[in-house]
């Protein structure tokens, strides 16, 4: 019986492999070249639209048909995959620290990669907001409410998720301001906040699923873009977005992985792709998908109107840049780890 099943699943598997091989080779028969963009978790929908637009644009300009392959996952995991040998031509990650890691550990691009494109190589950014159940039954208005007793907060694990690190730092920035820079009080607030977290998912999408689909928690700390997407996906009658008094400018930078692009013969294409992200067409798409464009002039005013005005702190000014923030808060034995240390 079981041998039968093994045999059957084997032939099924074989069929699947053959089919996948057909899929993989079919576009290549027509495509002149292909590009691999390794990105973070919640950008699937964004790059799907942008890639289609870019491929069409490239076709009219050069006559070449190109395929752009996407890879998505937690930002840190994606960076590690590139370091370990995933042949990404370009990376579009959740935070600069992850691209720094690629430059530092694998030397696949220069350390000053961020200066090669405008706005610290950030074509569009996002910020951190709250998603709550419709009608806001727990009356959550600002960061301070999240540390209250008897509340459940959903946010991913900052150790594995880039978005989660932005969440943590945004909460920290609020507390730092609210308590006038008193670090002990800020830490106490953060500890209470994370005590309210019943599930630490490994990525931002996982947290959105936990909150929106599994119905766990009273509030989700989320990428603004993902919060809007959840409204579209699960219905604006179920959830609503709460904008806190202060948040963080979550810069999600992009870079060409020079060594890989060179090896793949994609240098020109990779550079053109990233330039396109800063061009009006891509800016417009990004704004439509609820990202904050670096060049708002190209965006549809109706899309911009949906993005609320929030006081945003900047990672460099408030935390001294990613290298420092990473080391202080998220490294082994850092502030985040201490939150979960048993009191001795």
């Amino acid at each position: 019986m079981s041998i039968n099943i093994i045999r059957r699943s084997f032939s099924l598997g074989l069929a699947a492999v053959t089919f996948a091989a057909m899929l993989a080779t079919a576009p290549q028969a027509f495509a002149d070249s292909s590009l691999l963009n390794v990105s973070y978790d919640p950008t699937r929908e964004l790059y799907k639209s942008i890639n289609a637009a870019f491929a069409a644009d490239w076709k009219t300009k050069t006559g070449e048909t190109i395929t752009i392959n996407q890879s998505h996952g937690g930002s840190g995991k994606q960076a590690r995959a590139v370091i370990d040998g995933l042949k990404a031509d370009v990376v579009t990650l959740a935070l600069a620290g992850d691209i720094d890691a690629i430059a530092e550990k694998a030397k696949l691009l220069p350390a000053d990669w961020a200066t090669r494109l405008p706005h610290n190589s950030t074509p569009f950014s996002s910020t951190i907001v709250f998603l709550v159940h419709k009608g806001n039954p727990k009356a959550i208005k600002d960061w301070g409410d999240l540390a209250g007793q008897g509340l459940e907060v959903i946010t991913p694990n900052p150790k594995t998720s880039g978005g989660a690190r932005w969440n943590f730092l945004a909460a920290w920035a609020w507390a730092n301001k609210a308590y006038g820079g008193d670090e002990a009080k800020t830490k106490e607030y953060i500890t209470n906040l994370y005590k309210n977290v019943p599930v630490l998912d490994t990525g931002a999408r996982g947290s959105t699923t936990t909150f929106a689909q599994r119905g766990i928690g009273d509030v989700l700390i989320s990428w603004e873009s993902d919060a809007f997407l959840a409204l579209d996906e699960f219905g604006a009658d179920k959830f609503e977005i709460i904008v806190p008094s202060i948040s963080i400018a979550a810069e999600t930078p992009v870079a060409v992985i020079d060594e890989n692009a060179k090896a793949n013969g994609n240098e020109k294409l990779a550079k053109a792709y990233l330039d396109y992200l800063f061009a009006p067409a891509a800016q417009k798409i990004a704004a439509h998908q609820h990202y904050r464009p670096s060049d708002p002039s190209a965006a549809d005013p109706a899309d911009l109107a949906k993005l609320p005005k929030i006081e945003l702190v900047n990672i460099n000014d408030a935390f001294g840049g990613w290298a420092k923030a990473q080391k202080t808060y998220f490294s082994d034995g850092g502030v985040f780890d201490l939150l979960y240390k048993p009191r001795s």
Binding site: G76, I83, K159, T160, T202, D332
Partner: peptide, 15 residues
């Protein structure tokens, strides 16, 4: 196993 993945995320391969 998650602890192992977390250590890998921190590029702490030895850990």
């Amino acid at each position: 196993p998650l602890l192992i993945v977390i250590k890998l995320e921190e590029f702490d391969y030895a850990g």
